[in-house]
């Protein structure tokens, strides 16, 4: 009788442990996904630091490029690409804003193994001024011209 009770308690604890472990893994997964975004401050000639560049999300679900400023700029651009081995450009979204504070590209996704997303950002204060440019990527490892221009492996 006592042995049975002990077994029931043990099974109960095991259940709790499994549930706790699964929840911990889900939590870790969410945590990892939250980490998968890169944000950089951007400076433009003539105005200093004016805004932020970001690549957010995960390529296998949804990823976006963002170029936003704290002041009205003549031109902002976010051009996000998902590269696949080949090299093959699986998807891309290129968005420009003029006389604006910018925004975010539509989300794109790709389920291929090793696919990554990199965004090229342009920020321009006035028409004749040279732009502030930068690259960001979904996990920070592909934030360079080489990774945006074609598929690379290993990362930057």
């Amino acid at each position: 009788m006592q042995a049975n009770q002990s077994q029931t308690t043990k099974a109960g604890w095991t259940k709790h442990l499994i549930v706790a472990l699964i929840m911990a893994m889900i939590g870790a997964g969410i945590g990892i996904q939250q980490v998968y975004a890169e944000t950089k401050s951007v400076s433009v000639p003539g105005a200093g630091s004016v805004g932020t560049a970001n690549t957010g999300g995960v390529p296998s679900t949804n990823t976006t490029g963002t170029s936003t400023s704290t002041i009205l700029l003549f031109h902002l651009r976010a051009h996000i690409k998902i590269w696949h081995t080949g090299p093959l450009l699986q998807k891309q979204e290129n968005r420009n804003w003029t006389n604006s504070t910018g925004g975010t590209t539509p989300a794109i996704h790709s389920s291929g193994s090793g696919d990554y997303s990199t965004t090229f950002h342009e920020f321009r204060l006035y028409s004749p001024y040279s732009p502030g440019t930068t690259y960001t990527s979904w996990n920070g490892a592909y934030s360079c011209a080489a990774a945006w221009n074609t598929y690379i492996n290993p990362p930057c």
């Binding site: 998807k91 968005r95 804003w97 003029t98």
Partner: peptide, 15 residues
């Protein structure tokens, strides 16, 4: 050259 006002210009591709 010559853009005066607010615009949004976008292109995208997918395969």
């Amino acid at each position: 050259p010559g853009i005066q006002g607010y615009t949004q210009a976008s292109n995208g591709s997918s395969r």
